[in-house]
Design a protein around this nucleic acid. Sequence first.
DNA 1: AACAATTGCAACCGCCATGTT
DNA 2: AAACATGGCGGTTGCAATTGT
Length: 256
Amino acid sequence: MGRSPCCDKASVKKGHWSPEEDKQLKEYIEKHGHGGNWITLPRRAGLNRCGKSCRLRWLNYLKPNIKHGCFSGDEEWIIANLYASIGSRWSVIASHLPGRTDNDIKNYWNTKLKKKFSGLIIFAQPRRARRKPANCTGFPPSLVDDASPVLLPFPITDQHLLSSGAPPPQLLHPLPSQYGDCDLMDLVGASSINTDDQNPSGCTTVDHLESYFYGGGDAAAALLQFDMEEYGGLMPDVDGCTGAAVWSSVEATYLQ
DNA sequence: AACAATTGCAACCGCCATGTT
DNA sequence: AAACATGGCGGTTGCAATTGT
């Protein structure tokens, strides 16, 4: 037996919302709330729309305190790190960025950040974690089944570099061609890390990054390795999986 | 100026999880 | 316990706007 549709698809309006519809939905919800039932809301509010469509419109656009517009460097960095840690769990990522919606973040990732950060995080990204894959052996269970978001430090500071204990970078992969001649600032994707107040030593972080990572290695691979070292330091012994084990697992799976 | 290609993003679709009857 | 209803989520699509030729 099939599942009954939530509304009559043929008769409800689809496509972009008009200002009048927005006004109607906004006023209704502000006055009555959504009442815990989105399916019946359009009828109650006098809208010829599917309940799901109303919910989406409210959550992604009409709800108060939603931030539209450009993402900051900090936000980009957080998104990239979380994506590297937990994959495309946009709602979890959105919960770390007040005012941003999962849809916005997903769109921003797909259109901008994916290209920008692709050389950095491709290997650290677990498979989609919504369900546990039947026979996943590439990642520790804690990362695949019920990963907790782990924020890498932002901005990267001298202290992080000096205390990371990471070995000198090795050339783990060829540098993706799109990074052939870009500079390190592009790679880290953060315009705000190069400021004096974040670098009490007086040295610029980018300078340190360069001297630290460019010792014959490639920046993308080195940053990935640095991330994983940090990851291990921040997330020890979760379900018996140390950061080193996570890194080993990534190595075994992807770095043959 | 006209057309084609690309980009950005709002909205839809369908699946899964959870709650209710 | 089973069937059904609904919410929530991620993937994808469609279209308007922008950019390139």
